[in-house]
Write a protein that binds this DNA or RNA. Structure first.
Lengths: 237, 237
DNA sequence: CAGTGGTCTAGACCACCAA
DNA sequence: TGGTGGTCTAGACCACTGC
């Protein structure tokens, strides 16, 4: 199965990103796209709906689909994006240092945030992210060990999501996130370059698999001057 | 036109919110819903897709649609939600004070952020939001005057979105948002109760109409301890 | 194997926009 | 008025799940 609507989406999204389609221009009509891709109109519409959701186009009844301006400097902590994917879009030098990687048995706080049985094996992972040599992001992860049997420092330094999705074959599906600003604790100040700041932007995420298992809880602390969260949202009526 | 899929969505969403459907339970199958609502399966699927997007359910191929746990304390600055809608879900007392409401002609900074012609009439609106008597949110709005001809202090104190959508008949469509943490300026400290904090969580939004007109630019500054941004995100592959 | 959701089709009618 | 997108239908075949 190759998913026609996905192929149509990819093609048009790439053209917009490559600015072969300029902002303000109209896409070919749905009927025209239906002919061009030799498919049905509903399939074309699925592709266009995806483009609309992701901020590529705006559909106008009676007129057509307008190409929207693309965000420059996309630094999306929004959506479900890992640090590695994020780092790619930044020009700065990026380095990840693994401070701790050990298995524990769930109890108390861990048991609570992962909503699992007492005694469930869990990975505890602490990582420090350096931009241009400065330690400005501090990630603490808790993961169900059953989902990531062979986690290593090398994987943690690279990308956990790549490992889980490509090697273990897990399907990460959705997450609930929360962004707040909190006082930096003494433990934070010990490992991070605080640069005189006393507060941290904290992103807490609960990440779920396709079968609705909660398998990861992450606390990501950012030095405020290095923090930015961008979002594209449609009005729901 | 009453949109069947919307009616099905509303009904199921309300049942989940009212916890008539418990988290973990399976929804009736698509075929069963098709019969129950006397419609076609594609229409049922449109409703279920909406429920999935908004975090109500998770679809599992071969099994069914699982009801997800609802967020307690939904305080969504995420999505496109106005202060009034937001305030409703909070137990605290809420008060809005209009500090300034005047028309200007666009130039320089205003012209740039609203991407309009020099000399375009623009509303400039400053509002202070008080929770439990403390001034903890400071909103600065710029709006195209052409879209909101008769803006008054009373409207600004109530809800601009209600006025625009219900009275003027505008359709707000989407927004790009950015969250950052910044130093509080002396002007901010003068009007806000800073409670010893030196920094502010700043949400900048550009809001667009259905015809892709950029009509509002907002800067919303929150005292860090009163700021919270929650998000539901699906992984895009 | 039967039942589930995932994809796709060909056609219909409607609401909206511009000429 | 003709073209656009919005909604809906009835049916088909596929992939996956659990028994």
């Amino acid at each position: 199965m190759q998913r026609k609507f996905q192929a149509i989406y990819d093609l048009i999204a790439r053209e917009i990103q490559a600015e072969k389609m300029e902002a303000g221009q109209l896409l070919p009509s749905e009927n025209e796209l239906t002919e061009r891709f030799e498919t049905s109109r509903e399939t074309v519409r699925k592709a266009l709906q995806l483009l609309s959701q992701n901020g590529y186009i705006q559909k106008l009844q009676g007129k057509g689909s307008v190409v929207l301006e693309q965000n420059k400097l996309p630094l999306p902590v929004s959506g479900l994006t890992s640090f590695k994917e994020l780092a790619r879009s930044m020009s700065q030098t990026v380095e990840t240092q693994v401070l701790a990687l050990k298995q524990k048995l769930a109890e108390g706080y861990i048991q609570e945030v992962l909503q699992c049985e007492k005694g469930t094996p869990v990975w505890e992972l602490h990582r420090l992210r350096k931009l241009d040599g400065e330690a400005v992001i501090y990630d603490k992860d808790l993961l169900l060990a059953a989902c990531a049997p062979a986690l290593t420092e090398a994987i943690a330094r690279d990308s956990i999501y790549d490992y889980l999705e490509q090697d273990v074959g897990l399907s990460i599906s959705y997450a609930r996130k929360e962004v707040v600003v909190e006082e930096a604790g003494s433990a934070d100040a010990e490992v991070m370059d605080m640069g005189g700041y006393q507060q941290l932007a904290v992103v807490r995420s609960a990440v779920y698999l396709e079968d609705t298992t909660l398998f990861q809880y992450t606390e990501s602390k950012h030095r405020p001057d290095k923090f930015r969260f961008v979002d594209f949202a449609r009005r729901t009526k």
